[in-house]
Amino acid sequence: MAISTNFFAVFNSIPSTSSSFSSSFTKPSLGSLKHHYGLKVGKPSSNRRLVLSCSSSQMDSNSDTMNIGNGRSQISSASSFGLTMSETTMSRTSYKWQRVLLKVSGEALAGDQTQNIDPKITMSIAREVAAVTRLGIEVAIVVGGGNIFRGSSWAGSSGLDRSSADYIGMLATVMNAIFLQATMESIGIPTRVQTAFRMSEVAEPYIRRRAVRHLEKGRVVIFAAGTGNPFFTTDTAAALRCAEINAEVVLKATNVDGVYDDDPRRNPNARLLDTLTYQEVTSKDLSVMDMTAITLCQENNIPVVVFNLSKPGYISRAIKGERVGTIIGGTRNSMAAKT
């Protein structure tokens, strides 16, 4: 590395004492810097430039000092939630998954069905997600749009073809995503909405690397507009985005406690299943997710946890691997499962 002789001009301009610092501060000598950082300074050449080399062993020993800038964003993201780095590290160790994808159905956002979106439900989701992100867990969300418009139900009405109906349903998911984003940011959660097709005035376009970077910075990313293609459900979009961003699990939040061996509304003796394999879901034709989503999860070894969104604390409990709802294609955390 070559540096100008202005380095010495700046160095020599440092005052030995300053009123803004404590009186114990003294200007370090060039010799002490050379000894501390392993600097070797050659004589100035004719073009008045110095050649400066650093000893790798001594630089490595001071990597904590030299890399302050690289870790600044991580420290600030943790401190912004009122946690120290040691607390964040300790809390992360108790969680089964560190990056998760939460699938929220449109019906769950409607609550008691008296209105399209229930603000109490969105605030409950926001608080649950806040409790998790404050512990360093990275959360992405895929929202459905069934509370506003379901394309498969409206296809054929008034000459509306399936593709057009599905695109209308995708717009409904964008509406839900923007509402959920506003709720989360109202309680201090940095949130980004990314859409599968461009709507630059209201949201970012989906870019995988940008989404991952948002997660690494502690932001919640909400994926809207499904996959951007008709004939695919938001469950398939959840499985696809989970695989793309390298999330470890799909948390499917619904209005039921999990997967039953029969319809609990018709059969009061229906039994809640604790674990299922992908093959059992397909062979028994259980209405958990569509077959495309289940197959995508199976091919990428992505477990799916189906649980009741309305139960307080269930999101964080699901991430810990506790006995919440039904897990498909995975195992419980052996330590948490005993609780």
Results as ranks from 00 to 15, higher is better:
4 S>R: 11
6 N>D: 15
15 P>E: 14
17 T>L: 08
19 S>K: 14
26 T>L: 13
28 P>C: 04
37 Y>A: 02
41 V>M: 05
45 S>P: 05
56 S>I: 12
58 Q>P: 04
60 D>H: 14
60 D>V: 15
67 N>K: 10
67 N>H: 10
72 R>M: 14
76 S>P: 01
77 S>V: 03
81 F>K: 15
84 T>S: 14
84 T>M: 05
85 M>S: 14
85 M>F: 09
97 W>A: 11
97 W>T: 13
101 L>S: 10
101 L>Q: 08
106 G>S: 03
109 L>P: 00
112 D>C: 02
112 D>M: 05
113 Q>I: 02
114 T>K: 07
118 D>V: 00
120 K>A: 15
123 M>Y: 08
123 M>C: 03
126 A>K: 10
126 A>S: 15
128 E>A: 07
155 A>Q: 11
158 S>Y: 11
159 G>D: 03
160 L>E: 05
161 D>Y: 01
168 I>T: 14
168 I>G: 10
177 A>P: 02
178 I>P: 14
178 I>L: 15
179 F>H: 15
183 T>G: 01
190 P>W: 00
193 V>W: 01
195 T>K: 05
196 A>N: 07
198 R>I: 15
207 I>H: 13
214 H>A: 13
216 E>P: 06
217 K>T: 07
217 K>F: 05
221 V>T: 03
225 A>P: 09
229 N>K: 06
242 C>V: 05
242 C>Y: 03
248 E>I: 08
255 N>F: 05
256 V>Y: 08
260 Y>G: 02
260 Y>K: 02
261 D>A: 11
263 D>Q: 08
263 D>W: 02
264 P>N: 02
267 N>S: 10
267 N>R: 04
270 A>S: 09
274 D>S: 09
275 T>R: 15
278 Y>V: 15
280 E>K: 03
285 D>K: 10
285 D>E: 09
286 L>K: 00
288 V>L: 13
291 M>C: 07
292 T>F: 11
292 T>K: 13
297 C>K: 07
297 C>T: 07
301 N>Y: 01
308 N>E: 02
310 S>D: 08
311 K>G: 08
312 P>N: 04
313 G>T: 04
318 A>W: 06
318 A>V: 07
319 I>N: 08
319 I>C: 08
324 V>N: 07
326 T>F: 10
328 I>W: 07
329 G>C: 06
334 S>P: 07
337 A>P: 10
